[in-house]
């Protein structure tokens, strides 16, 4: 491992441990689920940091299909409903092989199901699409994932305020 890599790794790990670093099984808990107020007080007693930490459940509770309906209406997004989650698109996608956060099949699924909490976590990955079109050639159901990514990136941008709140 080169010096640079080591440094980067250290930086990454310390960044990951910022919140809830005292939790023994911290590595199993998503960053986004930890609420650790820097300042929390109740009845004059300081509960900030560790003593006021909460870990949100990861249950999927919402089937909010608003973004899905938008994607369907946007240019080239009309075929999203045809997707049956075979994963051909992700298999051939050159970007997905380099970036784990870009997974066209997954993005399509969370939009179709309307898992807002998941969309919040992953919506920015959609801009990684290079538009090479391999997925659309590989798709057995004519979903045109490349086009769906276009429609999705527009829809996510249009809903940006809700997705980053």
């Amino acid at each position: 491992m080169s010096e640079e890599e080591k440094k980067r790794k250290e930086k990454e790990s310390s960044a990951g441990e910022e919140k809830g670093k005292f939790i023994i099984e911290r590595r199993y808990v998503d960053d986004s689920r930890i609420i650790e107020p820097k300042k929390l007080e109740l009845g004059g007693i300081d509960m900030s940091g560790r003593w006021g930490t909460l870990v949100l459940p990861r249950t999927l509770e919402d089937f909010d299909t608003e973004i899905y309906r938008d994607v369907e209406k946007l240019p080239r997004g009309g075929n999203i409903g045809k997707c049956w989650q075979c994963g051909n698109c992700t298999a051939v996608c050159p970007v997905a092989h380099a970036h784990s956060e870009f997974n066209p099949r997954y993005l399509i699924h969370i939009v179709k199901m309307g898992y807002t909490s998941e969309i919040k976590k992953h919506h920015e990955a959609v801009y990684l699409c290079s538009g090479c079109g391999l997925c659309s050639a590989a798709c057995p159901k004519g979903v045109d994932p490349q086009g769906v990514m276009i429609a999705m990136s527009i829809a996510f941008k249009a809903h940006e305020s809700e997705l980053t709140e």
């Binding site: 990861r58 249950t59 999927l60 509770e61 089937f63 989650q85 199901m113 898992y115 998941e118």
Partner: peptide
Amino acid sequence: EDTLVRGPFEV
């Protein structure tokens, strides 16, 4: 469970 998301759902 939605096994494609790997998460439990309650709807």
